[in-house]
Simulated assay, not measured.
Amino acid sequence: MAYSIRTFGDPVLKSKAAPITDVDGKLVRLVDDMFTTLYDSGNGIALAAPQIGVQKQIFVWDLGEGDQQVIFNPEIVESDGEWVYDEGCLSIPGLYVEMVRPKTVLMRGVDINGEVVEREADELEARMYQHELDHLHGVLMFDRMTSDQRKEAMAEFRRIKEAEQAEALKPADSRFRRLRLK
């Protein structure tokens, strides 16, 4: 089952997610549904549970190799360097902002089998871990921006939303032609 992705303005995105205490069948189904939602999004590489309204410390990812990954209760235990990259978010669709984050990270968490795992990553993968962890703590890209970036990004996001709303109001096809009554 695919969920709707919550977007900026939804209060669930600003709340801290609860830790996972037990990996059971219900949680495994949720992970499967998260992958379905991620793939249905068309352009995401990762999805955190709060983005679908589930306040649990889970995120899933697939960096394009068809290698589905999930982690519960993740934390960054080490980071180093800086890397500048245009970052986007499924919960802030259409907006990409140049952001600085650590270049390398060591993430620790629990896998689907309940085992503690560590993942070292750099550049895009490291950024993705940090971005998804932010979601688990109620932090959005806007919260990581400088005040000038945030002002410009918010204005652009409003333009994107207004354009989407205007497009949604357009007639989809000829069924909406005006009737001319005599």
Rank of each mutant, 00 (worst) to 15 (best):
Y3M: 03
T7C: 01
L38G: 03
G109P: 04
R127E: 09
A49N: 08
P11G: 11
D67E: 15
H135L: 09
K161E: 13
S147C: 00
M107T: 15
E75M: 11
G53K: 15
I52K: 02
V110S: 04
R101C: 10
G114E: 12
S91P: 12
D122Q: 11
R29K: 14
E132A: 05
L181Y: 13
E115K: 15
S4E: 15
D122F: 07
L169F: 08
E87F: 00
R175D: 14
T7A: 02
E98M: 00
I58W: 10
K26A: 10
G109L: 03
Y39R: 12
A2I: 07
R101L: 14
K170A: 14
G66I: 11
S91V: 06
K56G: 01
L106Q: 11
L27D: 04
D134G: 14
P50N: 11
T21F: 07
V139H: 02
Q165K: 14
D111L: 00
L106H: 10
A49M: 12
A163F: 06
S147P: 13
R158D: 14
H131T: 09
D134R: 04
Q149P: 10
Q57M: 11
S91N: 04
D143R: 02
E164W: 13
L133R: 08
V54W: 07
T146H: 00
D134I: 06
K14D: 09
H131F: 03
A166M: 03
G81C: 12
E65T: 12
G64R: 07
P102N: 11
V28M: 06
M99C: 06
L136P: 02
L38T: 01
N113V: 05
E65V: 01
L13H: 09
E132W: 10
E132P: 12
S15H: 09
V100L: 06
P19Y: 08
D80K: 12
D80Q: 14
L140G: 03
E162Y: 04
H131L: 10
